[in-house]
Amino acid sequence: MIPAPFDYVAPSTVDEAVRALADAGEDAKVLAGGQSLLPVLRMRLAAPTTVVDLGKIGELKGVRDEGDAVVIGAMSTHYDVQRDPLVHDHALLLARATDTVADPQVRHRGTFGGSLAHADPAGDLLAPALALDAEMVIQGTGGRRTASAAEFFQDFFTTSLAPEDILVEVRIPKHTGWSAHYEKFNRVAQAWSMVAVAATVRAEGGTITEARIGLTNMASIPVRATAVEQALVGRSADAETIRAAAEHAAEGTSPTVDGNADVEYRQHLARVLTGRAVEAAMAG
C-alpha cells in the first residue's frame, strides 16, 4: 500500500493552486482532505504526477452569511459543517446528512468541497446539495464562474470541473425554518450508503408548502425526486399522503447493481426510505 511516486505542492492561495494544476497538466490530482484520494493512491488505482494539496489555503475554509445564502468554504471539514450554527439554522438538511458521514476521524479530515468534487454517487453530501439548490463557485484559469448542483454532477466520479479548476466554495440558498431528515441505509455503520434519502420540507398548519428531496446512490449522479415533491406540496402531511407520494420515489432512477443490492431492491428501498425520511422530517 505504497503510492507511486508523485510531486507534492501545497500552495497558499487559490490562484497559486490553479496555476499549479495548470502547470501539472492532466495528470494532477487535488488533495482536499484525502479521505478518498489517499486510499486510491495507496492502492495504485491512480498514479498522478503531481498532487496539489489545498490544505494550506486559508481562504477556502469557513462558513459565512451572505444575505440570502450560506456560503461554505470548500475546505471546511465535515466536522466544521456539522457544528456550524449558520448551517444548522439555514441548511439543516446538510447538517443532518453530514452527521452520518463515516466516523469522527474522517469527519475531522474530510472536507465538504472534497466530497462534492469527488462525486461518488454513494457519498452522502451530493443529494443534500442538489436538494438545496446549492451553487458551486469554481475558479479556473479563466477566472471565477458558478455551476448549479444539477450542472456540476455529471457522471460517476465526474463533475464539470476542468483539470485546472478548483471548487472554491458552495453557496446554499437559505432554507430557514425548514425541517429536515437524512435517511441513510447501509449494512454497517461505517459503510457507504446503499441508498439514502435527503428530505427537507416546509409546512404550515400541517400542510406541506414546499418539499425538496434528493436521492443518494440511485443513479450515477444524485437524483431529485421531483414527482414525490409535487405529490407532497399543498397536501396535509398525514401518513397516507406521504406513503402515496413516496411511491413515486424511484421514478427516473437508474441505480447500479452490486453485491448489496440489485435494481429492484434499490428502487424498493428508495420508496420505503423516502416515506420514512419525509415522516421523520415532519416529526422534526
Binding site: 454497517v188 455503520a189 453485491g259
Partner: peptide, 24 residues
C-alpha cells in the same frame, strides 16, 4: 469473501468485506 466468475475476489477491501464495529 465473494469471487466473481473469473475467480477475482470482489470483496478485496474493507469497503466491500464488511466488518462490524461497536456501532453495529
Amino acid at each position: 469473501a465473494v469471487y466473481d466468475e473469473f475467480g477475482t475476489l470482489t470483496s478485496g477491501t474493507f469497503a466491500d468485506y464488511l466488518l462490524p464495529s461497536a456501532m453495529d
